[in-house]
Design a protein around this nucleic acid. Sequence first.
DNA 1: TACACTTATTGTATTTTATACAAAATGTTA
DNA 2: TAACATTTTGTATAAAATACAATAAGTGTA
Lengths: 243, 243
Amino acid sequence: MPASRSLIQGDDMYAIPIRDFFKSAFSVDCVIFGYHAGELKVLLIQRGSEPFENFWALPGDLVYPDEDLDSAANRVLMDLTSLTDIPIRQVHTFGKVDRHPLGRVITVAYLALVEFTELSPHASSWARQTRWHPISRIPRLAFDHKEILDRSVLDLKTLVLTEDIWSKVLPEKFTLTQFQEFFECVLNKRFDKGNFRKKLSGAPFLRQLNETQKNVSHRPSLLYSLDRKKFQSARAKGFAFDF
Amino acid sequence: MPASRSLIQGDDMYAIPIRDFFKSAFSVDCVIFGYHAGELKVLLIQRGSEPFENFWALPGDLVYPDEDLDSAANRVLMDLTSLTDIPIRQVHTFGKVDRHPLGRVITVAYLALVEFTELSPHASSWARQTRWHPISRIPRLAFDHKEILDRSVLDLKTLVLTEDIWSKVLPEKFTLTQFQEFFECVLNKRFDKGNFRKKLSGAPFLRQLNETQKNVSHRPSLLYSLDRKKFQSARAKGFAFDF
DNA sequence: TACACTTATTGTATTTTATACAAAATGTTA
DNA sequence: TAACATTTTGTATAAAATACAATAAGTGTA
């Protein structure tokens, strides 16, 4: 395509009328990962209408003309889970010409991570049902959602090492074992217990509490909490886990 | 916004007619980084028309209705530099409601890295002029392009450690010193010469050639070349530089 | 109470990697 | 041939990663 087709940049000699450009839509799709006790799942909806009626799909929606992209992603998350205040991250934008049967629709994928037992997603007008699916067993998905999901799983692995998106999956007070199990699950690796703790022992963002586990039939663990401020400032200086 | 406004998902009781969603456009903007001899620059254009006439801006264009996102980014790069076969990477999508004066336009930012002396970008119908600007001295930019650029500089630092987008900035045959200088420049760090080489000495993707520098007034360096295949397979196994 | 049991926590010895710095090598140039 | 500039190799030390063992502190049970 010659540059001269361009209009918005100023040359309209052979240009497509600009109104022909303003006939597209964009959507957001949310990859909502759920973690609990060593299991990683993803929240899917079963579509209630065409196209791809009855197919499982990532929850998503068209973006309103007067709505920011990030707001749209938060809205979808909110509609489905009633959760606000969940950190979300943009992953990638998928824009193949024919990816949507109804017209030209590109979609911006977002990723979130929550504790899935704390959350009962409601079916909604547009979702026949919602269900947590283990990431290891995913049904056939609508649109290009499998590609979006695969990409997001990779991105999640990077993100847990650099950002505190895991802050919502651990209880307010957690043990180092829980902390380790989470990373083992997401990264799909095992760590030596002693060495894992040694690595974390200097971390300024882990506050050791004067409290221990209760009612466990073994030596109770010390409890820790996350100091978000200190994590952010460590991150700003370039900190990342090197698991 | 209530979920019930959604239409594409199936509920049209209170919905905005779907045609009202298909009134947006999207563009791509290319952050073309140029490297040469320890200097990092970015290619900007001076806009030839409104909006933001005469402002410096990232090269970009609206995406045609029948054009994939990646193709559009390649087209912009091609129009401006006549270079094909440059690896590009999607960075982020910027979608604030009012980011474009002509209507709802979200933009997908792409990043590329080239050797800037090998390239004479042409001014074009839509670009009054083009110029390489050192990343340390950037003029006021049109739209939200400063935000896009800042974000891309950060992404570049991550990308050079994990992907071979640097493959186009080094000559076919290069010295380890050149290799080191490139990373020092982009990452804005200094490395010990001996230790830097030691780290690289095991790298299977660096082929040592039976050839040395010519016409240098000091001990000539051995020349190396990149084995792309081996780099890719190392990368697939999780390799990344840890500079 | 004493002892088994389970997991937490600390420790230690070994290997590997990073770092700082120096020495030697190899071309050009005067 | 010696000065010069950079490459290349080496070495000594410090730091970090790893494997694995020992000890601690609860619960449950004889």
